[in-house]
Amino acid sequence: MKTAVIQFPGSNCDQDAFHAFATVPGLPARMVWHKDESLGDAELVVLPGGFSFGDYLRCGAIARFSPIMRAVTGFAENGGVVLGICNGFQVLCEAGLLPGALIRNECLEFRCTTVELRVEEAGPFFNREKLGERLMIPVAHGEGNYLIDGEGLDSLRKNGQILFRYAARGSAADRRLENPNGSVDNIAGIRNRRGNVFGMMPHPERAVESFHPSRDGIPVLKAVLEAAKSGAGVGV
């Protein structure tokens, strides 16, 4: 399995993603520069976190026009598996590969903390049987407030496209149980309808080593890998 990690000039979780995929057995990764026009022989594409082009206009707004994004779009249309983490998720929404948009956190501040995620039944790879019911994974973003209109939300729910929700409780007495950004329906991650494009605000690559807040990122990365191996987007 060959993984391509896309590097935009302001990507800053690219190395983290690279190392995390190397930690999960069998996933040697390769960096692909945003000015490249081809993904080569990649079988899995990762859009890492960061501030692609400074994100002064809107997060991911300029990145979607990078030459490599044409290749990523084609790859996804052919059923290739794409994972967008944080800024990568924002880029996928801007590029129209995932529905909805990510706007400013409700608290109007950047938030870096480890949150509890509830795993939803989102298809053959992302489900409670594979991942467990709850995951502790760090978030770090200023614009992770997922937004979609009512119709779109109904469609996400109906088609099992919600991957994770923040395990938020009304009062959030325990700070792990907060929704860090105010996203609609506590959404933390989604997939496209076809089931081959995944986007999430939390950073699974920051939850793989013994000293990380948890190692719950490993099953997430494995789920993506499994999706890619099985040709998830083909014929689902």
């Binding site: 800053n12 190395q15 920051r206 793989v208």
Partner: peptide, 16 residues
């Protein structure tokens, strides 16, 4: 925490 939750203190995945 009010201060450092605004700082990305985990990027580079090396914060022990």
């Amino acid at each position: 925490r009010w201060v450092y939750r605004q700082y990305d203190h985990m990027v580079m995945a090396g914060t022990v």
